[in-house]
Design a protein around this nucleic acid. Structure first.
Length: 491
RNA sequence: GGGCCCGUAGCUCAGCGGUAGAGCAGUGGACUUUUAAUCCAUUGGUCGAGAGUUCGAAUCUCUCCGGGCCUACCA
């Protein structure tokens, strides 16, 4: 055991010896730090006498300034910080001397009166204090905080203790999720929960995590999307449903990717992708307004205006505009591949035309879509679950929403023709045989459901983590996930 | 997968072939209105791990472990 821990344990024993429980089961608390501060602020400066009624506050000791016969301590609770002044002549010798058993990081409770120092600092003048929970390890350094990125993520509690920005980020995250729920609830959507352990992981082109269910002796897949189960509910007559839940994709990590991430998916019967686009822009701007009080955000050096209407642009025109590439002139995989290779893009062999269009889009278009943009009408082979565009069977009614240079939303007019759906699954199989390993798999159980009739429907998916990145100005997904994935520490 | 960089006290960092350092935290002392309190004294280290080069390695080399950034792949 290290010396610091031993010292703190010794203090813990000394507290017990003094008859003070270092971990009492209950605390008397009448005011939060913020409430006590508000009372003190209503008093004139240098109010050393008891002008307000007594308060009981509690929190973690985050700073300490020992002045001899007076000691200042800063207490922090969930509402903020407040200064406490503990004076020997107020506490008595015994209780004052016991302050030497209080370390940074400990939780204490203070009974005292709101006051202000001669500099006007809101303060609680202590009459008594009590240990609430002794900490055996020191908190991070008081000025520089905790900077080591790995430690901040593995020991997020230390990051939260030390860094105000981290507390702000995760407070906003929580408020964002809650505002999204309010938005959808107010529009008559029902929140549902669907299986995470699935017999077949569908709804997206991604490799799943595999686990094993002992009782049945069968493997299960962790879901990679919410889509196919939510559509089953629409088939059953739940007209407006949504789920906010964790997806798992067995892929690498990056600034934009964590193997488990939180998705919102919503499905609205009798809507199409145009209606969904209007809902998406209203949702994001109203969530921003509720949580941040404004619809503009600063992100990677740009000011982004989230207020609707968002710019609409077809994928076809976007590639023309940003890449000087007319995909109609390169209508087969072979032609498009050779054109992209001629331009110096390295493309994976075996990709079909749709994935090549996606590559070109990622390279030429996506980084330019900083202000909110709805990119419309995708190649059919990229989107096996979306309905074809009337008059152009190579395209589907699908849009992706881009903000800040990355994708944060995806929507279709949902494919409800079970015969076309089966054909589209089979097309995916052919792409797989041609060398593309990440394709949608045939899901017979879903097809059987679809054969019972699904109303026309607009579906929407949005990465909650990425939305939070945008609204908090964080440039990596790991900064908005409390406990992101890390390699196991080996001894 | 490739390139670059980082790992030194509980935390933030310096040192980059010649006796392991600073600030904060801790410990002892002074101080009854401080607030990155101040002042005096002081404890604390297998310098990520292992191997090598050298009279001598935190420092140079190699391997490994963990991490970061960029890039590619996954798509």
């Amino acid at each position: 055991m290290d010396e610091l821990t031993a010292q703190r344990l010794a203090k813990l024993q000394q507290l017990r010896a003094n008859g003070m429980d270092p971990y009492p089961p209950r605390v008397t608390r009448s005011h939060s730090a913020a409430e006590a501060t508000a009372i003190a602020e209503s008093l004139p400066a240098d109010s050393t006498e008891a002008l307000a009624g007594p308060v009981d506050i509690a929190g973690r000791v985050v700073a300490r300034r020992d002045m001899g016969k007076a000691t200042f301590v800063d207490l922090q609770d969930g509402s903020g910080r407040i200064q406490v002044l503990l004076r020997q002549n107020q506490l008595g010798d015994e209780l004052y001397d016991a302050l030497r058993l209080v370390d940074l990081g400990d939780f204490i409770g203070v009974h005292g009166v709101p006051m202000r120092t001669r500099t006007g600092q809101p303060t609680v003048g202590a009459r008594t204090w009590a240990m609430l929970a002794k900490a055996l390890h020191a908190p991070p350094e008081k000025y520089h905080g905790l900077a080591d990125i790995e430690l901040r993520q593995r020991r997020r509690y230390l990051d939260l203790m030390a860094n105000e920005e981290t507390r702000r980020t995760f407070t906003i995250r929580s408020q964002v999720v809650s505002a999204v729920r309010r938005f959808l609830d107010s529009r008559g959507f029902l929140e549902v929960e669907t299986p995470i352990l699935q017999e077949a992981a569908g709804g997206a082109a991604a490799r799943p995590f595999i686990t094993h269910y002992n009782a049945l002796g069968e493997d299960r897949f962790l879901r990679i999307s919410l889509e196919l189960h939510l559509k089953r509910l629409v088939i059953g007559g739940m007209d407006r449903v949504y789920e906010i839940g964790r997806n798992f994709r067995n892929e690498g990590m990056s600034a934009k990717h964590n193997p488990e991430f939180t998705m919102l998916e919503s499905y609205e019967a009798y809507a199409d992708y145009n209606g969904v686009a209007r809902m998406a822009e209203e949702m994001v701007s109203s969530v921003a307004g509720e949580v941040l009080g404004q619809t503009t955000v600063q992100f990677r050096g740009h000011e982004i205006d989230l207020a609707p209407p968002w710019r609409r642009l077809t994928l076809h025109n976007a590639l023309k505009q940003y890449g000087a590439l007319d995909i109609d002139e390169f209508g087969t995989a072979e032609k498009l591949r050779s054109e992209l290779e001629r331009r110096g893009l390295s493309v994976h062999p075996g990709l079909g035309w749709g994935k090549l269009v996606d590559e070109a889009m990622s390279h030429y278009v996506e980084p330019n879509l900083v202000q909110p943009t709805i990119l419309l009408d995708y190649p059919v082979e990229l989107s096996p679950l979306a309905k074809r565009k009337p008059g152009n069977p190579k395209l589907v009614e699908r849009f992706e929403a881009f903000i800040g240079g990355f994708e944060c939303g995806n929507a279709y007019t949902e494919l409800n023709d079970p015969l076309d759906q089966r054909a589209r699954f089979e097309e995916q199989l052919k792409l797989r045989e041609a060398g593309d390993e990440e394709v949608e798999l045939v899901d017979d159980d879903f097809l059987f459901a679809l054969e019972h009739g699904m109303p026309p429907c607009g579906g929407f998916g949005m990465g909650i983590d990425r939305l939070v990145m945008l609204l908090t100005g964080q440039s990596t997904i790991r900064e908005v996930i409390l406990f992101p994935q890390h390699k196991t520490v080996k001894d």
